[in-house]
Amino acid sequence: MRHLFSVSSSLPALMAGLLLTACGGPEGPAAEELGEGTGEQAAALTSPSASISCARTSGIDISCTANASGGSAPYDPQWQNRRLMMGRIYVEGYDSGGYTRVVDCLTPEPGGTTFSLTIRFRVFDANGAVSNEAQAGPFECAF
């Protein structure tokens, strides 16, 4: 009588197969578990993204508009001002706010004392994921 396989040589393969089956098999998670299928599910898996656009609107003001996308809405928009004065950087903490902001920045006079202002924007999404830090500037401002 001939055997199609030898039990002693097939035992390691049989054990590996049983182990894979007991652990859920070699298949990965279903597409639904990965967020594939709907745009809403896929967006929830992406990090939020932030953008900002600022322009001097007068001799005193810089007006900014920001946007957020990706991740899971609603977002917590946050703003920060960074000043470079006499070779030192001064950073304010992030303020929560909306998607528009007006920042005071006097237009410098020739020969006057100035500082550089950079405006930064980021968001946290509903899951607590943070976006990139978008920035605009630097703008030259007078004291």
Rank of each mutant, 00 (worst) to 15 (best):
G71M: 11
R101I: 06
S69L: 05
Y75I: 11
T107L: 12
A66Q: 10
E92V: 02
D61A: 15
I89E: 12
Q80E: 13
S72N: 12
W79F: 04
D104P: 04
T57W: 12
S63N: 09
V102W: 00
Y94N: 02
W79Q: 06
L106G: 05
A73G: 14
R83C: 03
G97A: 09
G111F: 10
S63L: 08
G111S: 09
C105M: 05
V102P: 00
M86S: 15
I89K: 10
Q78H: 11
R82Y: 05
A66L: 10
I62W: 12
M85D: 07
C64A: 07
A66D: 08
D95A: 11
P108W: 04
A68E: 08
V102S: 13
D95W: 05
T57K: 13
R101D: 07
T113A: 14
P77V: 10
S58L: 08
V91C: 01
P108M: 03
G87Q: 06
R101P: 01
Y90W: 04
L106M: 09
P108V: 00
Q80A: 08
T114I: 07
P74H: 10
P77E: 08
L84R: 04
Q80C: 07
D76S: 14
I89H: 05
R83A: 12
G111P: 03
L106H: 07
S58T: 14
D61E: 14
G59S: 11
G98F: 08
